[in-house]
């Protein structure tokens, strides 16, 4: 395996999983760690890569005081083996082969991971499906996948960054929580919506989307709490 530092507190684990059966963009895996006395701890992590043979990328956000993420972010070494189970989850998924509807992705913090799998699956499939990503971060240095998102923008991905605490210099949008003006009403062909992030973020965004007239049946959510560590 290999790793990449994404931000000060987020790391990508690049895994080689022999015999991996493949997955849909949006699915997750269970990672299991085993201590020397046989004790095990498991956590779920979203897969950030599209299906690509035995290659898997997981995004791990450091949860201070957590049991598993500090180990994966700071203690794990290249070449170490880790137990993986999956893919898991068949609801929060986007499949370029079966879905032609426009897509609205709304991510908060490390909730970008399964959405990035969808963005990457779109590119891998050379899909022309209209994609819009609204990505909420605290500050400019918290943007995970920043360079890749810029590159994908040239490929028809519409990216809106929402800074909640600190906006970049010259930004026309002052720092503040995500609001209805960041999301937009469904126009023309209404999108399938995927919302992922911390509980409060997802709860608030899903409510706003319903309020804007999006069909609740076309809003799929994935949440993680502060105890996800």
């Amino acid at each position: 395996m290999d790793t990449r530092t994404e931000t000060a507190s987020a790391r990508t684990l690049v895994l080689d999983v022999p015999g991996w059966p493949g997955h849909l963009a949006g699915q997750h895996v269970d990672v299991r760690l085993t201590a020397a006395d046989g004790y095990t701890a498991q956590r779920s992590y979203s897969i950030a890569s599209p299906a690509d043979g035995d290659h898997l990328e997981l995004l791990v956000q450091l949860v201070p005081g957590g049991e598993v993420s500090p180990y994966l972010v700071e203690g794990f070494s290249i070449g170490d083996a880790v137990e993986i189970r999956g893919p898991i989850g068949g609801w929060f998924v986007w499949n370029p082969a079966t879905s032609g509807e426009p897509v609205l992705l709304v991510g908060g913090g490390s909730g970008i991971a399964p959405l990035m799998a969808m963005v990457r699956a779109r590119r891998a499939a050379a899909s022309r499906t209209p994609f819009r990503l609204v990505y909420s971060v605290r500050a400019p240095d918290q943007v995970i996948y920043a360079d890749e998102l810029v590159r994908q923008s040239a490929d028809g991905l519409d990216v809106t960054l929402v800074h909640t605490r600190l906006a970049p210099p010259g930004s026309t949008r002052p720092a503040g929580r995500i609001g209805v003006e960041d999301l937009g009403r469904p126009t023309g062909s209404a999108p399938d919506c995927f919302v992922c992030g911390p509980t409060g973020f997802v709860e608030s965004v899903a409510d706003m989307l319903v309020g804007l007239g999006h069909d609740p049946a076309r809003i799929r959510t994935e949440r993680f709490g502060p105890s996800g560590g």
């Binding site: 899903a206 319903v210 609740p216 049946a217 799929r220 959510t221 949440r223 993680f224 709490g225």
Partner: peptide, 8 residues
């Protein structure tokens, strides 16, 4: 924690 598949 809160987990659900769609809007509340």
């Amino acid at each position: 924690p809160v987990l659900s598949a769609g809007p509340t």
